[in-house]
Each structure stands twice: as structure tokens, then as C-alpha cells.
């Protein structure tokens, strides 16, 4: 797995997200209140809402458009909703955020 250094941890606000642009679409990189990071496609499967703009609570994010809630680690919709968002490897090393590129390549171009 190629891990790519995309930003300093502090570039992402706690309980917030920043976007990484890739050839295969945008990826939302989230930071939780306790400094864990997660990378998910920045697209809600419901109506394409930008998940990076949702409210982050615990390890969940609520889509800003219609309020679907996703687990940041598994990408699975919570509660009565179904559906999922693709997740990508992400970790913090010495204050830098790394995300996995191989999975992005493997996915078919949208």
C-alpha cells in the first residue's frame, strides 16, 4: 500500500474535514475530537452530498444535505438507512496525515 502524505494533522479542524482532490473524485479526510483520521469518498450515496461538510460527532458524520448518518470507519449508513460510502486507508504519523492511494487507483473511473 502506497501511503501519501497529504497534509499536517492540524490542517484539518477537530470534528471537521478537508477535501483531497484526486483523478477519481474527491476524498473527504475527517479528524475526530480525539485526533483519529478517516478517509471516505466525499459523496453521499443518497443524493451526492459532500460528506466533508457534515457535522462530525464521535466517529460518525451526518450528511449536510438530507441528514443521513455514516460510520467513518466502515462507511456504512446508520439507523434505518441503507447504503455505504467507500473508505480508504488513513493514518497519522508524526503529525502528518497519510492516505492510501492504491485503493483509489483500483477503483474504476467514475
Amino acid at each position: 500500500m502506497t501511503m501519501i502524505d497529504i497534509a499536517a494533522l492540524d490542517d484539518i479542524p477537530r470534528e471537521g474535514a478537508r477535501v483531497v482532490r484526486t483523478a477519481l473524485g474527491c476524498i473527504a479526510v475527517f479528524r475526530t475530537a480525539d485526533d483519529r483520521v478517516f478517509a471516505l469518498d466525499d459523496r453521499c450515496p443518497h443524493k451526492g452530498g459532500p460528506l466533508s461538510e457534515g457535522i462530525v460527532h464521535g466517529s460518525l458524520v451526518t450528511c449536510p444535505l438530507h441528514g443521513m448518518v455514516f460510520d467513518l470507519a466502515t462507511g456504512l449508513a446508520q439507523g434505518a438507512d441503507t447504503g455505504s460510502v467507500a473508505t480508504h486507508p488513513a493514518r497519522v504519523e508524526r503529525g502528518r496525515v497519510l492516505i492510501g492511494l492504491e485503493v483509489m487507483r483500483a477503483r474504476p473511473a467514475a
Binding site: A7, V19, V20, T22, A23, L24
Partner: peptide
Amino acid sequence: APVADLTLRAA
């Protein structure tokens, strides 16, 4: 803006 742009890299 996006915190990083990997469009060139991924291509």
C-alpha cells in the same frame, strides 16, 4: 480549497 490535489499523481 482542497487540502491536497492528487489528480496529477494518480494519473
